[in-house]
Simulated assay, not measured.
Amino acid sequence: MPEQRKTGGLDTPLSARARLFPRFNPNPDAFGSSTEKFARFMGTPQFLVYMTIFCIFWLAWNTWAPEGWRFDSAALGFTALTLMLSLQASYAAPLLLLAQNRQDDRDRVSLSEDRSRAERNLYDTEYLTRELASLRLAMQDVATRDYVRSELRNVLEELLETADGEELHLRAKNPRRKSGQPATGLIPQVDPNPTQHGTQGGK
């Protein structure tokens, strides 16, 4: 029969082995939020003012209070106050590091979102550029309003130049023709006795 392996050895995963103490797993979001709030409070002037007032009260009480009411010896250099401040500093440093790590994570997420947004904007810009280029290529074969206006203006100028040239040519052929007479090429007949025709008509 195959030999049964023992459970709880070094080759067994930690999750399968029995734990002496329950695993402490706090909510990282709630713990991190409270840590950031405390770290922000430690970086405010109010915290410095409160700590200064507390230390002054501690030193004054253990210096001038009655001997029986003192709880920290001034002769020993205020050992309890030094220990308390050391504990506060030892806990404040990890709390500040935890708050900084959370801020770094948020900055990293924000940076990745900004990068993805910039890439989308770049893709949209390239797409619009291609569309504009295709529209320009398509509009080369289409008569636009400005193009039609310019062509009509050119044709009108050519017609005016042609009319002026023909008028000058006819004037050169028939110099007696006045500007108000039609360009027929024939000299109009002038009646030598207009009064005689008028009297005949009156009769």
Rank of each mutant, 00 (worst) to 15 (best):
L95E: 03
M139Y: 04
K6S: 09
T82A: 12
I53Q: 06
Q46H: 09
V49N: 10
P192Q: 06
A183I: 06
A172K: 06
V190P: 11
L152H: 11
S110N: 12
N193Q: 09
T125D: 06
M139N: 12
P22Q: 02
L170A: 05
F31M: 13
L135H: 02
T144S: 11
P45F: 00
F31D: 12
L83R: 06
R17F: 03
E157T: 14
Q4D: 04
Q189Y: 13
F71M: 08
N25W: 00
E131P: 03
F38P: 01
A92L: 06
A99S: 14
A163M: 11
A89I: 07
Y50I: 15
P175N: 02
K203A: 11
L95I: 08
Q100A: 15
G8Y: 01
Q4T: 12
A30S: 01
D124Y: 02
G8L: 01
A30Q: 04
L10T: 13
Q181W: 14
A138Y: 02
N121I: 07
G198N: 13
R5D: 10
D114I: 03
A60Y: 06
C55T: 06
L20E: 08
W69R: 13
K203P: 11
S34I: 03
M139A: 09
L96P: 04
E3L: 08
F54P: 01
A30K: 07
V148A: 15
A133N: 04
T195N: 12
Q189E: 11
L122Q: 12
T35V: 08
D104W: 02
S15C: 10
E126A: 13
L14G: 04
E167M: 13
R106E: 15
W58T: 11
T52D: 05
L156V: 14
R108S: 13
L87R: 00
G43C: 05
D146E: 15
M51D: 05
L160Q: 14
Q181D: 15
H197M: 12
V49A: 10
R106P: 10
N25P: 07
F41P: 12
H197V: 10
Q189K: 14
L59T: 12
M1P: 11
G9C: 08
S134H: 08
F21W: 04
D114V: 03
D107A: 15
R115Y: 00
G77T: 02
G201R: 07
L152A: 15
Q100M: 15
G180M: 11
F31A: 15
P182A: 10
T79E: 03
A60N: 08
T12P: 05
L76Q: 02
F41C: 11
M84A: 07
R108W: 06
L159Y: 13
